[in-house]
Design a protein around this nucleic acid. Structure first.
Length: 550
RNA sequence: GGACCCGUGGUGUAGCGGCCCAACAUGCCAGCCUGUCACGCUGGAGAUCGCCGGUUCGAAUCCGGUCGGGUCCGCCA
């Protein structure tokens, strides 16, 4: 008999003889005294170690033999954890009076967000279904249908490029509530998250309950991210006050800073504790990271124990101003102050990424802590210069804050002629995201339930009346029959499970994930269809245009 | 669409122009040992170094292409 054989053993379980117990084994105190042994199935030598949980194995091999990979303890444990997570989610929702309702997988293409997967129809040749990117419209229709507390563990599909935290098909906890305001949804979701976390990973401390709530602007100002990791500080500091003259005009002596401030941009920094003695090459590396995300450069200052300040830009700022900058930032001797001067968004993004990167390197974030937080009041729209329209930042159905309702307008007065200077650019949405340890766990919004408002918002987003009726006709018609105010959220179950399992990759909590190129190495999918299948659908592959060379 | 990293016996790695028809660990096979459980001991088989082409007297080692895997940017909520 060899490893991985499937056997049936009949015998008696008995305590091991004194001296032969093995405390290292879970079953080390007992043994099975076999009377009969039957081999039910023999097994080939597996392509990798099953019994050594720490043995590294090439991931492609694990995916090819996923059924063997799942025999291994870590994978098995993660799938059990995920099962407990989903059970806890269902339990919490049922206790709160939510109804679980399944929605179809074969639906209609919608223009929102990502590229759709499409499925050709055999009964109606030349037409296609789309796989849902989320059950968004269907759950809103359920609200119209009077199912006032809906949830679903829903499979979603998006035909976009993959990442460690993105698969073409993934699982969302999708929920929607009628007569809900922002507070209603956030309060329930927060309660549910706490219940689920305590049930599934009771040993992991929650950093802060109730969860901190940041406005989008505040999150950007303090953490440079709309999904902040709040397990550690190192917050962004606005350095402008130390760089302006008595008249308020930029007067730092350093052109880069003055230009940024003069053109409406920002000069901000982060204090990296204890990194004052960093090497030139490490600074270069951080500068490279800053450049990759759009910054033109990265300045730094190092306060020394004798009260002086070192750094290449001291000669521009002057010793006195350099000291003022360092003092404003709160940097102490031995620390490193990293400074970015750029447009508001770039400054935030670059410093936010540096903060996360350095926080990770310095081990500032407690890996056991679960730090949930809310980010809300996102801008309704972002200007899309290419298509000359306002693009919904999150969900095209998101409702504006009541006080921002008047801003859903254009300068021209015609909603079908949007312009980058429209008041709409200042409108904020009743939109909220939950972040966990620097990952976006989910997001949702209060929806627009009035047809006239929806039409106006869609117009700003560049949807003509006809296009709107073609794409959203169903939901528009439904709203004519009386839609209750409603709102909801969707949380990434794969991400949640991964974070619970200390993983940085959602493949580790999925039984049968796909590779970065969208392949299933076990099933060898996707594969060319049988010619007969194509013929039945009236399809033929004509090839793709060759990309232009040179 | 782009940048970068990886691809060597079954598995994980080392080697990074000749000393390599490739080393180590583990696994596999055979034998021995017998209260073993990451057993131990002895012996053995097993890779032409992802694939194609080039440079060179000579390539696992350099170059180009290609395929596969990964990380990231774009994309995506």
């Amino acid at each position: 008999m060899r490893n991985e054989f499937v056997v049936a053993v009949a015998g008696d379980v008995a305590r091991r003889l004194p001296g032969t117990e093995n405390p290292k084994l879970a079953t080390g105190a007992i043994e099975l005294r076999a009377r009969e042994v039957e081999i039910l199935a023999e097994a080939k030598t597996p392509p990798f170690y099953i019994n050594e949980p720490d043995a590294p194995v090439d991931e492609a091999l694990r995916l090819r033999y996923r059924y063997l990979d799942i025999r291994r303890e870590p994978m098995k444990e993660r799938l059990l954890l995920r099962s407990r997570l989903v059970a806890a989610i269902r339990d919490a929702h049922h206790r709160a009076g939510f109804v679980e309702i399944e929605t179809p997988i074969l639906i209609k293409s919608t223009p929102e967000g990502a590229r759709d997967f499409i499925v050709p129809s055999r009964l109606q040749p030349g037409t296609v279904y789309a796989l849902p990117q989320s059950p968004q419209q269907l759950k809103q229709l359920l609200m119209v249908a009077g199912m006032d507390r809906y949830f679903q563990i829903a499979r979603c599909f998006r035909d976009e490029d993959l990442r460690g935290d993105r698969q073409p098909e993934f699982t969302q906890l999708d929920l929607e509530m009628s007569f809900a305001r922002e507070e209603t949804v956030m309060d329930f979701v927060e309660w549910m998250i706490v219940e689920v976390s305590r049930a599934v990973v009771p040993e992991r401390p929650l950093q802060e309950v109730p969860f901190p709530r940041f406005t989008f602007e505040e999150a950007l100002e303090r953490f440079g991210s709309d999904k902040p990791d709040i397990r550690f500080g190192m917050e962004l500091v606005d350095l402008a006050p130390a760089l302006r003259g008595p008249d308020g005009a930029p007067a730092s002596g350093f052109r880069v800073f003055d230009d940024a401030l003069a053109s409406g941009g920002r000069v901000k920094g982060i204090v990296v504790p204890g990194l004052g003695g960093v090497s030139r090459s490490q600074i270069d590396e951080l500068t490279e990271l800053a450049r990759r995300h759009g910054a033109k450069g990265l300045a730094h200052l190092s306060p020394l124990a004798d009260g002086s300040v070192h750094g290449p830009i001291v000669k521009f700022l002057g010793e006195e101003r350099a000291r003022a900058v360092v003092a404003l930032a709160g940097a102490a001797a031995g620390d490193l102050l990293l400074i970015v001067a750029d447009r508001h968004e770039t400054t935030a993004d670059v410093l936010g990424r540096l903060r996360v990167e350095l926080g990770g390197r310095l081990g500032l974030a407690d890996p056991d802590v679960l730090a949930y937080c809310w980010v809300h009041r996102f801008p309704m729209y972002q200007w899309d210069e290419e298509n000359r329209r306002w693009d919904a930042t999150h969900n095209p159905f998101s409702a504006p804050l009541p006080e921002d309702l008047p801003l859903l307008a254009t300068t021209s007065g015609d909603p079908y002629r949007p312009d980058p200077d429209d008041p709409a650019g200042r409108a904020r949405a009743q939109q909220y995201d939950v972040a966990l340890n620097g990952w976006e766990l989910g997001g949702g919004s209060v929806r627009i339930h009035r047809r006239d408002l929806l039409e106006r918002s869609f117009a700003l987003q560049g949807h003509s009346l006809e296009a709107m009726h073609d794409k959203f006709g169903g939901i528009l018609e439904a709203f004519d029959y009386g839609a209750p105010p409603h709102g909801g959220i969707a949380l990434g179950v794969d991400r949640w499970a991964a974070l619970f399992a200390y993983q940085t990759n959602i493949r580790e909590v999925m039984a049968f994930p796909k590779t970065q190129s969208g392949s299933d190495l076990m099933l060898d999918a996707p594969s060319a269809p049988d010619p007969a299948q194509w013929a039945e659908l009236g399809l033929r592959f004509v090839g793709l245009e060759k990309p232009a060379t040179g």
